[in-house]
Structure formats: C-alpha cells, structure tokens
Design a protein around this nucleic acid. Sequence first.
DNA 1: CCTTTATTTCGATTATACTCGAATTATCGA
DNA 2: TCGATAATTCGAGTATAATCGAAATAAAGG
Lengths: 113, 113
Amino acid sequence: MTQGDQIWAVDALQALGHETRLSVFRMLVKAGPDGLMAGEIAQRCGVPASTMSHHLANLERAGLATSQRESRVIRYRADYAGMRQLLAFLMEDCCQGDPLLCADFSEIVSCKP
Amino acid sequence: MTQGDQIWAVDALQALGHETRLSVFRMLVKAGPDGLMAGEIAQRCGVPASTMSHHLANLERAGLATSQRESRVIRYRADYAGMRQLLAFLMEDCCQGDPLLCADFSEIVSCKP
DNA sequence: CCTTTATTTCGATTATACTCGAATTATCGA
DNA sequence: TCGATAATTCGAGTATAATCGAAATAAAGG
C-alpha cells in the first residue's frame, strides 16, 4: 500500500469521526438508493442548513457520499464504493486480515454458501 | 443500538482519523502481541515523545490500544477487541450488514469452510 | 541517595475544525 | 422578469486539537 492510500483513509475516518456526520452517513445508508435531500437531512438532525452543507461537503470530499442536483433540490446518497474501500482498507491493509481482528465477521458478511 | 454506542464509535473513528495515529495503530498491529515501547514508536514516527504520548493516550482512550508499564518502559499494544467492535459497528449498525457494502469481504475474512 | 533513562504531564502557542447568520447562486413557476 | 424556494458560499466568531519544550514522575542501578 502506498502512502497516498492512507491519506484518503484518514480523510474518510475523520469524516466519520464526528457525531453529526456519522449520523448523516447512517441516515443515508438507511435511506438507500433514494438518498435524501440536503434540507431534510439538516432538518432531521436539527442543524442549520449552512452547517449541514459543510458536513455534507466533507462527507463527499471523503468519498463517502455523492450529491446530485434535481431541479431545485440536491439529493445526497451514501457512497457505497467509498465505504467498501474504507472497510477493505481497515481489514486488509490496516489489520492485515488478521483472523484475531476479522474472523468474527464471517457471520455478518454474506458468505454462507 | 443506543446513542451511547455511537459516541465511542465516533471517538474511535476520530482517533484513527489522524495520520500519525493511524500509522501508529497499524504499526502496533504489525508488531503483534509484543507491541512496541512508547519511545520506539515516537522515534519511528519522527515525532517528539511528548507529542506521541498524547496520541497514544488518545488511542488508548478510544479503546484501540492498551498500555502496560514494564519497569522503566511502557509497552503499547493494539487493542484487538476495540478494533473488532469498531469494524462490527461499521458493518452491522452503520451499514446494516448490507451485502452491497459488505459482501466483498467474504474473501478477506476467514470464512472458508 | 543520586543519576540516568523512559515516559508523562504541564503550559503556552499555533493550527484546524465547527458553527451559524447573512449574502449569494440556481431553479422553478406565475 | 419577478418572487419564492433550496442550497451553497462567505465571513467571522468560538471551540477543539495538535504541537513541543520544559518540568515532573517512575523505576533502575550504581
């Protein structure tokens, strides 16, 4: 793994290392492919729109969310590819796939034949 | 999952969301059960001892490292249980075990029958 | 005891992040 | 074109984090 790889991982981890942003990301995962409008996210979190805009931009920069304008609203979705990369990094590069760290997840991931 | 559960996850994510600390954690994983002395960690990272001490305390508070004094030195080890909890949180609570997010990991984790 | 070594804690500075109202941009519908 | 609406960007204040030398603590060995 290169030095650069760790950099984006740091960005992604830092993005999720904030209560509001972690909530937002989970909200987006729960919302699924439809995602959520920026305004509704702000409202649900009880945070001013301008503040939320920064958090959403942060998540997007970190590769954990995508945005798409639809006429007047902007729809945010969880970026599954980014999250998958982060999880892969944590399990492979960071933890070296060590069974001590990762073995328990065989039940969580869909690996039943 | 409770509100409190997310709080420690935020702490752990934030702890890893820093270049030096992420490097240290990976270093500790690589070092295995023997761990590393505080001094050597600082030296390897090219960071003053006092600065590193804060980072190590941060990782320990976040449940990602443990420390143990051995006569004059202090040995740090990766906290596997904490990291497992974090990975479990990210896959289960955060991503809802969604195959879209987690399916790829069936090869990484040791789930071959 | 006193010195040396390893580490932490203190104290103070600097840097970065967070927050939010106000101003701005983009889009739609009348 | 003119509001009205949804969102972002700006600007400025506040808070939190990072940094590092100096001082304090802990332990070992003369």
